[in-house]
Design a protein around this nucleic acid. Sequence first.
DNA 1: AAGTTAAGTATAAACGCTTTCATTTTGGAT
DNA 2: ATCCAAAATGAAAGCGTTTATACTTAACTT
Lengths: 345, 345
Amino acid sequence: MILKRRTTIKDVARHAGVSTAAVSYVLNGKENRVSPETVEKIREAIRELNYIPDFSARSLVKNASKLVGVIIPQTEDSKQLILENPFYSEMVSNIESKLREHGYHLILSGVDKGKSYLDISVQRNLDGAIIMGIYPEQFYAELKEVKIPIVLIDSYINDTYFSKVGIDDEQGGYLATRYLIDRGHRNIALVTGSIRKDGVVEKRFLGYKRALQEAGIFYNPDYVFEHSVSYAYGYEAGKAIAAGHPEITAVFATADMVAFGVIQGIKESGKDVPEDLSVIGFDDIFLSRMFVPPLTTVRQDIALKGRKAAELLLEIIESDEPDVVDRKMEEIPLSIVERQTVRSL
Amino acid sequence: MILKRRTTIKDVARHAGVSTAAVSYVLNGKENRVSPETVEKIREAIRELNYIPDFSARSLVKNASKLVGVIIPQTEDSKQLILENPFYSEMVSNIESKLREHGYHLILSGVDKGKSYLDISVQRNLDGAIIMGIYPEQFYAELKEVKIPIVLIDSYINDTYFSKVGIDDEQGGYLATRYLIDRGHRNIALVTGSIRKDGVVEKRFLGYKRALQEAGIFYNPDYVFEHSVSYAYGYEAGKAIAAGHPEITAVFATADMVAFGVIQGIKESGKDVPEDLSVIGFDDIFLSRMFVPPLTTVRQDIALKGRKAAELLLEIIESDEPDVVDRKMEEIPLSIVERQTVRSL
DNA sequence: AAGTTAAGTATAAACGCTTTCATTTTGGAT
DNA sequence: ATCCAAAATGAAAGCGTTTATACTTAACTT
């Protein structure tokens, strides 16, 4: 593989009979510094030589890489991204297209347990990052050090340094639970990923409790099944509920993926959804529509969430005074979509 | 945002009282060129100053970026990645973890219709790329120009320049069809994404025809429903089959995602799977297990596919003579997993 | 003691680009 | 013709690294 030498700005300059500075000017849209004829000559040369700039060199001098980091959570056990969950892949896909539209590229990555994201952000000179999910305190502290714009998706970290996009999870949890209560359910289980401080699950849990309390229903800790956001855990919980809790008539799963598992678990225990047990999910991933039976769930616009996060980040990156932009919290609207997994008692 | 100046190798050198060369040596594992005490001093300085190297600068001089491009197909209409399909997200997730393990980062991207991948590979000085799916001829021609190692996933482009990882799709198509035939089906529909040259679908289609022929069944073009790899199209086709072709007893969908749609379409036409119509899919994405009814399908190890692609690429990148490594075709094994969507006639 | 060698270290060029600033050219105005 | 401002151009420094090369020192040989 004899690597042909790169075509550089120098080649272009020579070919056009001008200095590298001139070439750089037209490359950077500062054409007013160059005469129209020269611009044309340079354009021509660029075309003829098929010149493509080197972003590393550019990054070095401009101190901007046109690179954005995107972090998504990993499975607890292995080090794999939980990209399989359509919730994340749909967001990533929307973030990617928005970024590309603006000439940015995306480095997709998980972050090793206990390790920081400092390394990659500094190594790659990232212009910004979008972080999904929730991490240890320390992680955020380090992130701030890097001094790049950060957008947090689904995090309640209370620090104005970070911009955020998310939903009103407490309200979502409330809505879901209330929806069940309104249909006559009193003994309502909660199946959920681990309830961590500043995470979405914590808020949804709070909403669940608020709805219960408001309806005068005693909160029973035995009814919360907390472990991980996965089909597998939902399945397990579904079985446990169907087998061990005949008094429970409905379950609120804090993610559609979990709800699928719950339903499957219930079915395999010989009960039916929604005849014997009602189930409501959260997210409305595109699969929920196609599930059998179609899942009743709390809908959030996932694509919008991704797009908003990208837009917000770009806005901060491209503002002249990134430190002055006030860090807003973009809130994506919420609604219940009624399908066929909840019945009225 | 007062950007504190980067900590550079110079700072480290000064702090340790040595030259930048020495620092660079220990950074690059050439410690034998430096005395043990100096190494220690430098290590200390690095730690104390919290030094993190700049990969742009490194890339510039080493002409290697530790960056790998990953391309996945986009939806026809919009410019969005079809990452929602778990088939892709599972691969990406496995590729990512493998790459990260080896100190590489991944730039995830689609490629704009008609545009080339040349830009990004040159701009970013990519060390290699993994390309999923199939693109116009021209695309590959340009790709070769860049002279970086490329691994193609699911492509039958006949060019030894590229390494490949894939399955025996013809055999897969054959197996699926044969499976149905063996269970008494004669009128078998094929529902598939567009049959493009050198794509997996073309091969599966060929396998379908071979099985038919071998069984002495007349191939009926009316039985192939060709459009796009999507739930939506499957749904449409499912309806069309259930409503307009009472003689058809089984359908082979060339992707699980499509099979889901087909089944849904059939059900909404008032027929049942597998009672009235049998359906077999392809891929065995993790959802197929959880689908109701659980999908009978041709299984390929998607995670393995991703990992193999990453490994293969790394192997070529890190070999001293990348042009000498012979470009193999890694073949992932195939099998049928029997679940509940096919019945014997 | 002089010479040789090896080991350790430092200097400086190079990678491809942007951008400051000095210089040259142009074209009015006088 | 002369002057001047404005426009166009170019030289060169610098971004943070690596690495070839040069240099210094220490350690052996004779």
